[in-house]
Design a protein around this nucleic acid. Structure first.
Lengths: 151, 151
DNA sequence: CTTGAAAAGAACTGCCT
DNA sequence: AGGCAGTTCTTTTCAAG
């Protein structure tokens, strides 16, 4: 767990927001040379702090206008139940994220669908038939704001 | 809303998983030349389907081992209340995501903290003092699995 | 769609302060 | 740590089939 200075934090924040920025451009912005900036970024990658690079897909543009968060409480909770549920949940194409959580629910799922009618189909035919599902709670996403978070 | 063929979908899936792959490497993988692959990716960017590129930060490696999902029900729900709540919530450094949702709760927050003690501090001093907070429900993240989702 | 090529820019390396 | 200079690679654009 290496320690970071303000410049490292600024670089992380900048790259978390837009990873197309080159080391040269970031260096000019934060008063460093291109190689110095590059070495810092490399160090963050080697330390595992930068875990990868991804493109962000616009689900709306792809025709998936509905995002729903589901809280799922399992009816049966053995080790096998958890594994079965996870395997089956991750196999549903519309399921983007499967989170095993502690609290009122056992799992949280992020599900996308083309529209509400499509979501109902997914819910009835895919979610409610998952092995071990008990109580299900739903929240439909209206707007979402992402922040850099603490660094 | 342009329509995509299987190759476009394969490129999207590959880049959503790892955006460091070059157009040449992806082309070899999917049987296309470098310029052809590049033009497809460019088309996806121009259409807004690829909305950006981000680095993925490992919160664990940064010393933030605790992630909690909060469901928040507001006590007062006028237009002003929503805006006040959102402004205040997004200003908390530990809050990574603020989702305005429809359902049992009004907002869902993704909060990260160094440990449970640190989370309690954030909850008591930051979250519970947000303007208009009513009922709050929490789920602590154990494991998380991300899938490409439907394309 | 392909191949081939060329120019620009970014990534990477070695050396020096 | 940082900068400078140079090399290698990818990106980006073009021409021609």
């Amino acid at each position: 767990m290496i320690d970071l200075d303000d410049t490292d934090r600024a670089l992380l924040r900048a790259l978390a927001q837009d990873a197309t920025q080159s080391a040269g451009a970031l260096g000019r912005r934060f008063g460093l040379s291109q190689p110095a900036t590059w070495r810092r970024i490399k160090r963050l990658e080697d330390a595992g702090i930068i875990a990868g690079r991804r493109v962000v897909m616009d689900r709306e543009a792809l025709g998936f206008g509905v995002t729903v968060f589901l809280g799922v409480k399992l009816a049966t909770k053995g080790r096998v139940s958890l594994e079965d549920f996870e395997r089956a949940a991750t196999a549903i194409p519309e399921v983007q994220i499967v989170q095993h959580v502690l609290g009122l629910f056992d799992y949280r799922l992020r599900v996308v669908a083309r529209d509400i009618a499509d979501f109902e189909r997914v819910l009835r035919r895919r979610i409610m038939t998952l092995p071990g599902v008990g109580q299900v709670e739903a929240n439909v996403l209206l707007t979402e704001e992402r922040r850099p978070g603490p660094i």
